[in-house]
Simulated scan of single mutants.
Amino acid sequence: MSALTNAIDILRCFSTSRTDLSFADVQVMTGKPKSSTSRLLRSLRDCGLLEQDPRSRRYRPGLLVFELGRLHRADDDLIATPERDLRDVDARAVHTG
């Protein structure tokens, strides 16, 4: 596996129900060796994809993840498309939605 694939595996560990993770959490969830997990977490932190709480040492998605998400949102309007489709259905069915 490439380093990028391994990094993505770590980023996929985070979810709305798991917003911060310990080193051990990530290592167990990915099944990767401790040395690889440590190296990848440090790299992801250093480039801004992850942040690490200095007190708890837990990781959470960093500002760069948010910024990239905003770029996607600006280019792919997930709200306007269904609204436009719903208006088309409403117009054809002579109903409101």
Rank of each mutant, 00 (worst) to 15 (best):
E67W: 11
A74Q: 15
G48S: 04
F14I: 05
Q27P: 06
L4E: 07
G69N: 11
R58K: 05
S38Y: 03
I79V: 03
S15Y: 00
D9I: 01
A93W: 11
E51Y: 05
E83M: 13
D88A: 12
E67Y: 12
V65F: 12
D53W: 03
E83I: 13
M1G: 11
I8T: 03
V89Q: 04
G62F: 08
S38E: 01
R57F: 06
R55K: 07
M29V: 05
R45I: 00
L21S: 05
H95K: 03
T81H: 06
L41G: 01
F23L: 14
L40C: 05
L78T: 05
E83G: 08
R58L: 14
L64K: 15
L40T: 00
V89E: 13
P33R: 09
A93R: 00
F14S: 05
R73D: 14
P33A: 13
D25A: 14
R92N: 09
S15V: 14
R57I: 09
D88W: 02
P54G: 06
M1D: 03
N6Q: 07
F66E: 11
R58W: 08
L49W: 09
D75H: 09
R60Q: 10
R57P: 01
R84C: 13
T30H: 12
G69Y: 10
A74H: 15
F66P: 02
R18N: 10
R18E: 13
L4D: 01
R42A: 08
I10M: 09
P33H: 02
S2L: 04
L41I: 00
R84K: 15
S56C: 01
P33W: 02
N6W: 00
T19R: 04
